[in-house]
Computed example of a mutant assay.
Amino acid sequence: MPGFQCHNGVAVTLEPLYARHVDDLWEASQAADVSWAYLKYRPFPTKNDMAAHITRISGLERQPFFAVVPASSGKAEGWVSFCNIASADAAIEIGSVWFSPQLQRTRAATEAIFLMMQHAFTLGYFRVVWRCNDLNAASKRAARRFGFTYEGTWRGDWIVKGRRRDTAWFSIVEPEWPARRTLFETWLNESNFDANGVALKPLSSET
């Protein structure tokens, strides 16, 4: 099972999520209502509400959460977790992803997912899963961009915020990872970014 440890990249660091991240995350969450649309939880009306939520999820032994801290700001701007961990089957999911608007579609966001994938495969997991609300077109595009393969849609399997949802499933398996890792590393290399931090070339699976 993945432990609670820091994962250091060039553009981002993943830190075990703790109460000390609340101030940063509350700041990042302002005017970000749309970013909560497909998550189980709603936007938080107060900082205390967010703090209570972070206290709860940071203590989940079977679902380690990480604060996503871009090097550009040095502040937590989102979170991500490992979930549905089936060690006996060597399967794990990257889920409960919340990236604030300023983090979305950045080098740091891509590297954060890469670090999660790399850690999972380094630990010996064979199957890494990405799933999302079938209405969440952005998440489905992200899954394909990261190299996950669409597996199908479970119809009506959850009720979220009072509405029944269909869930789209994606995965990447260990034999696919070495080639995919190389593509990530090439994309993340400093030579792929201009002076403004904009990528010169896309990940190969981008369209």
Results as ranks from 00 to 15, higher is better:
residue 114 F to W: 06
residue 125 Y to A: 00
residue 143 A to S: 12
residue 98 W to R: 08
residue 137 A to S: 04
residue 114 F to R: 03
residue 100 S to C: 10
residue 142 A to W: 11
residue 124 G to H: 11
residue 130 W to A: 06
residue 98 W to Y: 15
residue 125 Y to M: 01
residue 123 L to I: 00
residue 142 A to T: 15
residue 134 D to P: 06
residue 106 T to K: 13
residue 132 C to D: 02
residue 132 C to P: 01
residue 116 M to I: 10
residue 136 N to A: 02
residue 122 T to A: 09
residue 145 R to W: 08
residue 115 L to C: 06
residue 134 D to F: 15
residue 135 L to S: 14
residue 107 R to D: 11
residue 137 A to C: 02
residue 143 A to I: 05
residue 107 R to P: 06
residue 124 G to Y: 01
residue 123 L to M: 03
residue 139 S to G: 07
residue 131 R to A: 07
residue 105 R to W: 09
residue 101 P to M: 02
residue 108 A to F: 07
residue 98 W to A: 07
residue 100 S to R: 15
residue 121 F to M: 05
residue 125 Y to E: 00
residue 143 A to E: 05
residue 112 A to M: 14
residue 137 A to L: 06
residue 119 H to Y: 06
residue 144 R to C: 15
residue 139 S to K: 03
residue 114 F to P: 01
residue 105 R to M: 06
residue 98 W to E: 10
residue 124 G to A: 10
residue 112 A to Y: 06
residue 107 R to Y: 09
residue 139 S to L: 08
residue 145 R to Y: 11
residue 121 F to E: 07
residue 102 Q to C: 08
residue 138 A to H: 05
residue 104 Q to V: 13
residue 124 G to Q: 04
residue 130 W to G: 02
residue 136 N to G: 05
residue 137 A to F: 05
residue 114 F to H: 04
residue 124 G to R: 01
residue 101 P to N: 02
residue 129 V to M: 15
residue 112 A to W: 14
residue 115 L to D: 08
residue 117 M to N: 00
residue 118 Q to I: 02
residue 135 L to N: 05
residue 126 F to D: 09
residue 112 A to G: 13
residue 122 T to Q: 05
residue 100 S to K: 09
residue 104 Q to L: 09
residue 108 A to W: 10
residue 103 L to P: 09
residue 122 T to E: 13
residue 111 E to D: 02
residue 141 R to K: 15
residue 129 V to H: 13
residue 112 A to R: 12
residue 110 T to S: 03
residue 134 D to E: 09
residue 139 S to T: 01
residue 107 R to S: 11
residue 123 L to S: 01
residue 139 S to W: 11
residue 98 W to G: 14
residue 117 M to F: 00
residue 135 L to T: 09
residue 134 D to V: 15
residue 127 R to Y: 04
residue 116 M to E: 04
residue 142 A to R: 11
residue 128 V to C: 05
